[in-house]
Each structure stands twice: as C-alpha cells, then as structure tokens.
Amino acid sequence: MNDMRVTEREVDDLEIKMKARNVDVFYGETHAIKHVDVDIRDKTVTAFIGPSGCGKSTFLRCLNRMNDTIDVARVEGEITLDGEDIYDKRVDPVQLRAKVGMVFQKPNPFPKSIYDNVAYGPRIHGLSRNKADLDEIVERSLRRAALWEEVKDRLAAPGTGLSGGQQQRLCIARAVATNPEVLLMDEPCSALDPIATAQVEELIDELRSRFSVVIVTHSMQQAARVSQKTAFFHLGELVEFDSTSKIFTNPDDPRTESYITGRIG
C-alpha cells in the first residue's frame, strides 16, 4: 500500500493530458452519458469501472472520436487533448486517433502477417523513412508488447494464427507502433484466460512509463491491480473519480461502496 501511495502522489503532479468537461452523449433519444468531468493525466493508468451498460465504454470511445462512425451518436460538452478541443471542426479524427490509440475488447488482428499488422499504423501515418526504419519500429513495438520473443521467427505468419493472449498483445503492439500519446483499452482482458490476462496487465504497467493509459474494465481486482486513478460510472453518470486506493478503501459515495462490496453490479 505504501508504494501505491507514493506513486499516486507522484501521479497527481503529472500534467493533465486529456480533460473532459460536462460531456453528454446521446444515442438517438437515449441519454447515455450525463455531465461527465474527468482528467486523464500523463503517464498514468486511469481505470473506468462500473456495472455493464453504465456508459464507461461509450465514454472511452468519445476520447478518440470512435463514436463518429455511429450515425446516431451525438456528443456534447468539451474534451481536450493538450488543451485543444478534439471536437473542434478543424480537427481531423484521423490525426486525433494517431495520437489517441485504442485496443479493443476482442482481439482483432487484421487478416495479414504479424509484421504487416504492426507495420499498418506506421505505414499509413508515414512514420518510417525506409524498410530498416520500419523493421525497427515493428521490433520495438513487439518488444514493448512483450511479444517479440514469441514471434520473432515467424513475422510473416498470419496474425490470426496466434493464441488469444498473443493476439491481444499483437493488437497492443499494433497500437503502440503508431507512437500514441494516450492509449485507450476497452476491456482488453475480457476475452483472455487468467495467464494471458496476467501478461497483459504486466504489460499495461510497463506502458505507463511512456503513455497515458485509460482502461475500461468490469473486473475491480484488475482496476485495483493496474491503475492509479479510478472512475466509477453508474447509469451514465460519473459517480466518483479519485485515486484508486481511495475508491477501493474509502469511497465517498454509498453507490461506489455498494458496487465495490458487490451489492450492485
């Protein structure tokens, strides 16, 4: 616990990377997210927890405008990245997503080789000058995703042939390869077995040294293990947002306590 306190104090000094103010999301007539304020700090793991359907994934998808692809979704309020409104008319979501990467619930490697999966982002964003550069990016990303040792001999094999845990780490490597500043993870372990989950969690902790990570999870243990800050969502509202240890040991809101102790969920 002591260690955790120390890191958390450090965390509070870090600069605020993303800031959400008064965010509302509508799906057609449904009011999915209500007046949410959240600060995402740099080099920090922020966890969103809450019962299913509470809007935590919806909110996560607002942070890199993935909701744009859904016709009926409408976002109000202000979300900034480094002080710039990401819903400004002048912002190109493509450029935004290069800075705010995303990893999804189900591993979704492209039906291409492992190499091409990781090289996809650098290629479309033009991050490498030549083949050697690209090779280096791919290797570095796979190392960061703790996958290099397992796949270095079969980079040309299809990514879909890996095991579930490996696939998810490949997707993380793919996201890391574009050099994002924020990495969003939508229940990245829900489709994995416990061993693979442990590997991914370890990885998340390492990623924190370079990026700001936001993770949505339905597992409270996971939130407690990997995050420094935790936000609890319930019925589209942000009920409580504080340091992880505070949320899990001494929450302010009775609803948070009920959820933590297992009475709602």
Partner: peptide, 16 residues
C-alpha cells in the same frame, strides 16, 4: 509511406 515523410518528433503538431 516510407519514402518521403520527414521523421516526426513524438507529440509534435497541433490537432487543429
């Protein structure tokens, strides 16, 4: 994708 683009420092450039 590989030939022309200048190397981009991490985090440079405004979104706007």
């Amino acid at each position: 994708a590989t030939a022309t683009a200048a190397p981009r420092p991490h985090g440079a450039g405004s979104l706007l």
